[in-house]
């Protein structure tokens, strides 16, 4: 860690926990997760449904109140802010949602949706200027001017997602959580949106958290990738490293499970047995042990620590780590 001091860290998440109480006990959706993101970089968070990846994104933005832990954004611990301070800070931290259908208010036109944050924070008071800014944002995300007064239900998924992006960009944020922004879209549209998000990042110097279940997308898009399993981060490494040399057995299985659109691709598939269960009152053992082909005695007795096995390559595994 000490040699990393020079890095320009924008977001530092420390021991973040988010528990939900359910009738069957406490659900440990995010359980003691720590990571950092450098300014201008993208961290991809991957995992299967219920692994807590979306909860992390929402806890960082305090759309869900974290149970414990710290989120330090640009040197400021945002978990200590009160409601009004947090509201002001929201201008700097934004989110793009998965579902381009439910994330837009059906009663508001394209321009009203994009304009709303500008109005709420009183960023641009003059109506004419605000209109100019909305048009400029629409151009940035590739929405034609003629769509200014249309309603979301008149538009396709790709265009709606562009509206969501424009809304997030309106306040010139520094950091955006992208929660599965392309998984509801067709491949050709998905590629359009991914390119757009790349361009915007380069232009505005944005920092992203990119949450997805699609490994090939995250490999393309992120600088670092963190793999989540049942509320825990099990592996984190720069994208190339993770794909070339996955260490955690779960990461290995996950990578081998991607269907590759290449008929000459030969890869031994590791088919896992069983499925992810919800981490309700988990025992202090390795959460992957029940499905792991390498599980040993130690795995059934203690929880592995998340440690740096190579520079920048973090793994939580007794056997491989």
């Amino acid at each position: 860690m000490s040699e990393n001091v020079k890095k320009d860290i924008l977001l530092d998440v420390q021991h973040l926990k988010k528990y939900f109480s359910t009738p069957r006990g406490m659900l440990h959706a995010v359980d003691d997760v720590s990571f950092q993101i450098e300014r201008g970089k993208t961290l991809g968070i991957v995992g299967e449904s219920g692994c807590g990846k979306s909860t992390i994104g929402r806890s960082i933005l305090r759309l869900l109140e974290p149970t414990s832990g710290k989120v330090i954004f640009d040197g400021q611990d945002i978990t200590a802010l009160n409601k009004n301070e947090m509201r002001a800070l929201r201008q700097k931290m934004q989110i793009i949602f998965q579902d381009p259908f439910s994330s837009l208010d059906p009663r508001m036109t394209v321009s009203q949706t994009i304009e709303e944050p500008l109005k709420l924070h009183g960023i641009i008071k003059d109506k004419k200027q605000r209109e100019q800014r909305v048009l400029q944002l629409m151009e940035t995300v590739g929405l034609a001017e003629r769509l200014y007064d249309t309603y979301p239900h008149e538009l396709d998924g790709g265009r709606r997602q562009r509206i969501g992006i424009a809304r997030a960009l309106a306040m010139k944020p520094k950091f955006i959580v992208c929660d599965e922004p392309v998984s509801a879209l067709d491949v050709s549209i998905q590629a359009q949106i991914l390119n757009l998000m790349e361009d915007i990042q380069a232009k505005e110097g944005l920092t992203y958290i990119f949450i997805t279940h699609d490994l090939s997308v995250v490999n393309h898009f992120a600088d670092d990738i963190a793999v989540m399993y049942m509320g825990r981060m099990v592996e984190k490494a720069p994208s190339e490293k993770l794909f070339e040399n996955p260490i955690h057995p779960y990461t290995q299985a996950l990578l081998s499970a991607i269907p590759v659109p290449d008929i000459h691709h030969q890869m031994k598939r590791i088919v896992l047995k069983g499925e992810v269960t919800s981490p309700i009152e988990p025992k202090p053992i390795c959460r992957f042990a029940a499905r792991c082909p390498y599980a040993c005695d130690q795995c059934m007795h203690s929880e592995p620590e998340f440690k740096e096995v190579e520079p920048d390559h973090w793994v939580a595994c007794h056997v491989k780590g």
Binding site: S188, A191, S216, N219, F243
Partner: peptide, 20 residues
């Protein structure tokens, strides 16, 4: 176009070529 829209696992930095 469909093939070009997909991220290439082997060349992760290659820019996607979506169908317009």
């Amino acid at each position: 176009g469909l093939f070009n829209s997909l991220p290439n696992i082997k060349d992760r930095t290659a820019r996607l070529k979506p169908i317009r």
